[in-house]
Amino acid sequence: MFVEFLDGKYIKVTIITLRCLSGLLKYPLPSLEKNCKEIAAKLFNLLRTYSSSSSQSERGDNLELLMNCYKVISNLIRDVQQFNLNEGKLQVLLHYAEKNLYDNQKQSTAFNLLKSILSRKLSCDKLTDVLAKVMKLSIQADSANVRLQSRQTMLQYILDYSLVEKKLVKLLEFYVMQLNYEYENGRESAITIT
């Protein structure tokens, strides 16, 4: 029934369906596991339909639908082991996360999406670019919450991925160098992660 409602003509019904799905994905329900490919296809179709480059499309109900859609995708990646994400779709999600790291309304969704991707140890070239921005945010962000979210994301990456020694040393050197950062909150953030 939920799969059918994702094709609904009414945006409010689709939003409610997404909210329900978000909660249901935490449970190992056989019907969800069986339909996860179809659910994912419909979610990406919703993203394609409702997101665009114009700021008009990301207001009100459209914004709420997009935020819920990304939340469901994050839960799908993190909680449904049968769900596999191909590299093209992973790049689309990483592009979204990268674009919204600096948007106050969408930051938490972007960080949740990144953490879900990292929890499954998914990887592609775009991930390195996005994490480079997250690394800088962990020091330079004005908001304490953004610095915290960035540090948590970077720590998850450092601890969960089997990084080659050279890459790990490079990441740690970055944080050690930030101990001389001009603002105190950036230095504190660097100390916390090292």
Rank of each mutant, 00 (worst) to 15 (best):
F174K: 09
E165I: 07
F111T: 02
V92Y: 02
N86M: 04
L122V: 03
I191C: 08
G186E: 07
K106Q: 02
I16H: 08
D129S: 12
I15G: 01
K34H: 12
Y27K: 06
V92R: 07
L163I: 12
L6S: 03
L21G: 09
Y157M: 08
E87F: 08
V130K: 05
F2M: 14
K9P: 01
L25I: 15
R48G: 04
A190E: 12
S119I: 05
K121P: 00
S123M: 04
Y27A: 10
K37E: 09
L76Y: 00
L94S: 00
E165A: 10
R147P: 00
L172M: 14
S53R: 12
N145C: 14
K167Q: 08
I139R: 15
L29K: 12
V80T: 04
A141S: 09
V164H: 08
Q149D: 07
K34E: 06
A40D: 10
V92D: 11
F2A: 06
T49W: 07
S53F: 03
K37N: 05
S108M: 10
P30G: 07
P28N: 09
R187G: 03
N145T: 14
Y157H: 11
V72R: 02
I191K: 15
S51N: 09
E33R: 12
S52N: 15
A190D: 13
R147K: 13
Q91H: 03
Q178H: 04
S116N: 05
T17M: 02
D129A: 10
E4W: 06
N62G: 05
L90Q: 13
E64A: 07
G60M: 09
K99S: 11
E33N: 14
S143T: 14
L155H: 05
A110V: 04
T194D: 05
G88Y: 14
S52Q: 11
E58I: 15
S123E: 06
N75L: 04
Y183I: 12
T194W: 05
R59I: 00
K37S: 05
I39R: 04
Q81M: 04
Y157R: 07
M135L: 11
S138R: 06
K42W: 06
R147Q: 07
Y27I: 11
L114F: 01
H95K: 10
L25G: 05
L18P: 01
M177G: 03
M177D: 08
K167Y: 05
L127A: 06
C36Q: 04
F174M: 02
C20S: 15
K106V: 01
N100G: 00
L131W: 02
N68H: 10
I77T: 00
Q156A: 06
K170Q: 15
D160E: 11
L163R: 14
S116Q: 03
